[in-house]
Amino acid sequence: MASSLTAALAILVALALAAQSARGGNLACEELAPEVCAFAVSSGGLRCVLERTPEGAPKCQTSPVVAGGAAAGWVETDACVRACGVDRAGLGLPFVASADRRSLRALCSSDCQDGCPNVVDLYATLAAAEGMSLPALCEAQRTAGNRRMMMGGMSPLGAPVGAPVSPPVVVDAPVAAAAPCEEW
């Protein structure tokens, strides 16, 4: 079932890209299928967003959000959607502050951050609109994850946290007082 859904989405992305090429490179959000709408960018550089019609059916619309770092006429790949842990079926623009730890972990992963600039740009723009910084959120998420691992007996690299390398030194004999320093 999952593989047939993935194949269907791949076909829809391919059809959207073929339609874009046939129109001379003009990608209009309103012409995209709902299954490939989210995380797409129109030829005019505006982000596409999935909305509901008055009848309740999902429809792709052009949003007022400019895609700063993303290429105009872009339909995001399924690989980036998976790597960043985002949902194409989500209506409207995502609310960054409500992201759970798992979603934020995927969004802050190196696979997403290094390989999916369109998704990262969208979430960075939305975070900024909410008065937050995506890089700061990612750093806080990494720091909190490292702190949780240390409290659980694991180092940030996954190795068990052990006892100190050398035990404290016990001195049986009294220690002589240090001689006063000579003045020069």
Score class of each variant (00 low, 15 high):
T125E: 14
M1W: 08
L107E: 14
Q113N: 08
I11Y: 09
C84F: 09
C84T: 02
E31N: 14
D172F: 05
A128C: 04
C37A: 03
L9M: 13
A70I: 03
A33E: 14
A144P: 03
L134E: 12
S42R: 03
A40G: 12
S43P: 10
G115E: 08
D111L: 12
V170Q: 09
E130Q: 11
C60G: 04
E139G: 08
A57Q: 11
S109L: 04
A70F: 02
P117A: 09
A163G: 10
R105H: 12
Q141N: 15
G73Q: 04
A7W: 07
A10T: 10
E130H: 07
M154Y: 12
A71Y: 06
A33Q: 13
A33M: 08
A2D: 15
D87H: 06
R105D: 15
G92R: 00
L157C: 11
C48W: 01
E130D: 11
D100I: 01
G56N: 00
L12T: 02
S42C: 04
F95G: 11
V175Q: 12
N118R: 04
G24N: 07
L134W: 11
L157A: 15
S98A: 15
T62A: 12
P54A: 08
D114N: 15
A99W: 14
E182M: 13
A89M: 04
A18I: 13
S110D: 15
S155Q: 11
M154W: 12
S43M: 05
S98P: 00
C108V: 01
G162E: 14
I11L: 14
R102P: 00
P156G: 00
A106P: 00
A178M: 13
A128P: 00
S3K: 14
S21W: 12
A72V: 05
E35Y: 06
S63P: 10
C37N: 04
M150W: 09
C108M: 03
P135G: 07
G158Y: 05
S43T: 12
V13D: 08
C29I: 04
A127Q: 01
D78W: 06
C116A: 10
V119Y: 01
L46T: 10
G85N: 03
P135R: 08
G73L: 02
E35A: 15
G115F: 08
S3C: 12
F95H: 11
A72M: 08
V49I: 03
G90A: 15
G56R: 01
E55T: 03
S63Y: 05
V169M: 10
A83P: 06
S110H: 11
P164K: 02
A33N: 14
A129K: 11
G45C: 13
